[in-house]
Simulated scan of single mutants.
Amino acid sequence: MSVPRHEFYETDEKLTLSVFDKGADPEQVSVKFEPRALVYENGDKKLELSPLTGQIDPEKSDYTVGKVKVEIRLVKMAQGRWGALVGDSPDPLTAFPTVSAPTSSAPRKSRKNWEGITNEILGSEKNPSSNEDPNAGGDAAVNDFFQKLYADADEDTRRAMLKSYQESGGTTLSTNWDEVGKQKVDIKPPEGSEWKKWAA
């Protein structure tokens, strides 16, 4: 028995083996495909490749007999380059299964939207408005507070606020007209400070 000359080229999906057997009779050529083996026979010529570097699909693999060579197409079970026809390397299928989708029907864990949760917490911890705390937000918030207080007040309360504020030089603000309406409101500077009238 003689071993015919042969060569191959491959893609990730398929390996094509050319067996140079000039004038081979298609009726006499025999090619056996096995998952990790290939046997080519024609008369006294025989080429046996075992174990193949990777696993093939015997059902999809085929061959054609030409005038100069027999072309054998091996369909790979797992995508990737072999680099050699035969090899004792472990079956690539055991290391790289073709099934990439999970076979279990376990429900996927939903990912928490941490950013949304953080924004929600921060939103609920907003700074107190001037309605809730007159000291919040500085002078602008204080002004807003007094404007709202003045807008919601009755006529006597408004008069008391204006009179007390003007007469005290801005040091007192009273909403009690019964008290403010009877007498002049004294200037009461904050403790530790002295009130001075600005020269016009």
Rank of each mutant, 00 (worst) to 15 (best):
T157Q: 15
L17D: 00
K22P: 07
G116T: 07
Y40R: 07
A106Q: 13
V75E: 09
Y40Q: 02
L93N: 04
E13S: 11
Y150P: 06
S174L: 06
S104F: 05
R81P: 06
K60P: 01
V70H: 01
L74M: 14
S89R: 15
R73Q: 11
T94Y: 09
G137H: 01
L49V: 10
D186Q: 15
V185C: 05
A140M: 04
L15F: 00
V68F: 03
K126T: 01
V68N: 08
P128T: 00
V65W: 06
G66V: 05
M1S: 13
M77L: 15
A101W: 05
S89D: 14
L17Q: 00
N176D: 15
I117E: 15
P97N: 12
F20D: 13
V142F: 10
T118V: 11
R158V: 02
A78H: 06
V19T: 07
L49Y: 02
S105Y: 06
D152M: 06
D156V: 01
T103P: 00
P26Y: 08
L38W: 00
Q147R: 09
R159H: 10
I72E: 00
T171H: 06
D186V: 07
T171D: 06
D178F: 03
V68K: 11
E13K: 15
M161D: 08
S129P: 01
V99H: 09
K184H: 13
A141K: 07
E120P: 01
A200P: 10
E155V: 11
E7M: 08
T172L: 06
T64F: 04
S174D: 14
D62T: 15
D178G: 08
E179I: 09
P51W: 04
K67S: 08
D21F: 09
F20H: 14
K163C: 06
E7I: 02
G181K: 09
G137P: 01
T175W: 04
R81L: 15
G23I: 12
V31N: 03
D57N: 15
M77P: 00
A84L: 02
L85M: 05
P35N: 12
S130Y: 15
W177G: 04
I117D: 14
G54Q: 10
S61F: 05
N119K: 07
S168G: 11
